[in-house]
Each structure stands twice: as structure tokens, then as C-alpha cells.
Design a protein around this nucleic acid. Structure first.
Lengths: 160, 160
DNA sequence: CAGAATCCGGAGCGATACTG
DNA sequence: CAGTATCGCTCCGGATTCTG
């Protein structure tokens, strides 16, 4: 629906990598997050390569944690209540479900709605960003399939 | 360069999610990996939705670990020796560098070449899959930027 | 129903020292 | 140079119990 080159003309995968080296060690990322004015950061977002680091870091935060993906996956089918999620996601405990849902909520991927019923009803659903996360999943699948295909070809050359 | 719909016509993000629920809990994935004949798996790869789970799991294995991304990032610039990587990636210890490099090697992302010099010289470089991983990074960046943009707009609506 | 509180074991990672 | 070996800690996540 929209191409990378259109939206972010200065996108250059080459330029990010050096920043990535220092990114995941969380020092610089935290610095940027903490001290920078958010509005200013937004205005620079398509120019500054450092923003790429933050972007990757953001994505990694979503990916981190054992249950984030299953939860997002489950919510893709539509609104879910706490217990429903617990049933749909095998082996997850209420503690983990609660924690991961809160993470996703503060990160703006999931919207939490409380209804004044007795007892209380709580519904979770994906925000725009949560739905857009499909794109990341798609590429992960695509790469994973390709990678497997490639690896199998290389590892069994003498079989034929 | 190639679109998902072309390469994997049966690709359906909807069908994967239910599988994803059980994927990251590693039970089914391990089952598939261990018991299935690899050749058979390869032939089914564009049909079986379970392969999506494995694919995502593969990608997650790459993403896991604090130093995998920095290492890949560093290797994108070309061949590197052990010590060079150690210098380019801040704060990484030889122990972790060694461990993560071996992980990447057995997963087929990095090729390790030993030269018969005195003392020994070892060079690391990205395999095809490693280079192709750019695509994943790109989308992560794209999503991260969009996500930030979207989140900032939502959180500061009354400012104007 | 929708969680919070507490306890606890293991994996992941760091620091340091050593080796072919 | 290119790693390995050992120790120790932190924190993620599981199990269980309790609450508004």
C-alpha cells in the first residue's frame, strides 16, 4: 500500500548499522528517549539515522517477552476479554497475561476498555500500530521461509 | 524486488495467528523440527501454515540475544575478524561474541573461515540469509517510525 | 471476572582469568 | 590472535495464593 522509498526517501539500511552496534546495548537509545523533546524528534524523524536505532529498539521491545506475539496474534481476530485470551493462549498464566498486556498497552499497541458491569468486564483490542504489526510478521515469515529453503539446499547438496 | 504474493501465493496472515498462539511456547515448533523429514517439509513449505510458525520462530531465534543484531550490523560492512568485531561492538565481551557468532554460524547466517596463518586468522562474513535479513530490519525500522509517529499524535492531541 | 502479591528456579549475561 | 573456563549475579517467567 505504501512503499518505503516513498515514505522515507532518506532510508538507507547502510547508515543504520553502525548505529545499531551501539543501540541494543541500550545506552544511546535511552539517552535519546529521555532527553530529547518529543516534538523535535518527530520533526527529525525522516532525516536522523539515530531515529532508526530507536525504531528498531521499539520493535525489539514489542518482540521481547515470550507472550507478546501470541497475544497480538490472538487479538488479530478481534476484541478479546482477559479470560478469553487466557483460554486461547495455551499455558499462559494470569500473571504473565496481565503483565504483557500492560506492556502492550503502554506501548500503544493495545487498547484496554473497562465496562461498568458487575463484575467488571474488560476488553482488549489492537490499536492501529498493533494491526500494522502484521507487516513485520509478514516479513519475518517471508525471511524465515527463504532462510530455511536456502539452508536446506546448502546442507544437502550431495543427496541427489 | 519480489513481492510476497508472487512467491507465496497461499500466504495468509490470518491463518498464521492461531498457530502463533502455540508457537512461541516452543512445543509444536520443536515437534516439527525434530520429527519431520526435512525434504517433505520443504515441499510443503508454501502450503502448510505450520511452516509459518517455524518461520517466525526461526526469525525470533535470530533476534534473540543481546548481541545478534549488532553483530549482523557490523558484518554488513564486510568481512571482519574476531578482534575487529570486538572493537566495533562496544562493551561486548569475547565470551559473548564467541557464543553469538557460533549461534549465527550454526543458523546459517554467518560463514566462518579459518586461515592457516601463525597465529591463526579467522574471518566472519554474512551468508545470503544474513544479507537478506536487511529486509526484516527495514520493516522493523519502518514500523517503528510509523508507530512513534502515530503514538505521538495520539498522546498530544490538545497541544495545538 | 480481572487481575495483584509473593516466592522461587533457571537462563542469560557479565567479569575475570586462562590457553593453543 | 581467537577464543575457552569458571564463577556469580540479575531478572524473566512459572507456580501458587489472594482480592476488589
Amino acid at each position: 500500500m505504501f512503499s518505503i522509498s516513498q515514505s522515507y526517501p532518506t532510508f538507507d539500511i547502510q547508515s543504520i548499522v553502525i548505529y545499531l552496534c551501539i543501540s541494543v546495548s541500550t545506552s544511546i537509545v535511552m539517552e535519546i528517549k529521555g532527553t530529547l523533546d518529543l516534538k523535535k524528534e518527530l520533526s527529525d524523524i525522516s532525516q536522523c539515522p539515530a531515529s532508526y536505532v530507536v525504531a528498531v529498539n521499539d520493535t525489539m521491545n514489542i518482540l521481547s517477552g515470550k507472550w507478546k506475539l501470541p497475544i497480538i496474534a490472538s487479538l488479530r481476530f478481534g476484541k478479546r476479554r482477559f479470560k478469553e485470551l487466557g483460554r486461547e493462549i495455551p499455558k499462559i498464566t494470569p500473571r504473565m497475561l496481565s503483565k504483557e498486556l500492560r506492556d502492550l498497552e503502554v506501548n500503544g499497541l493495545v487498547r484496554r476498555t473497562v465496562y461498568n458491569t458487575v463484575p467488571v468486564t474488560v476488553e482488549y483490542e489492537l490499536e492501529e500500530s498493533g494491526k500494522a504489526f502484521d507487516k513485520v510478521l509478514e516479513v519475518m515469515i517471508e525471511w524465515g521461509l527463504k532462510h530455511r529453503e536456502f539452508t536446506l539446499q546448502r546442507e544437502k547438496p550431495a543427496e541427489f
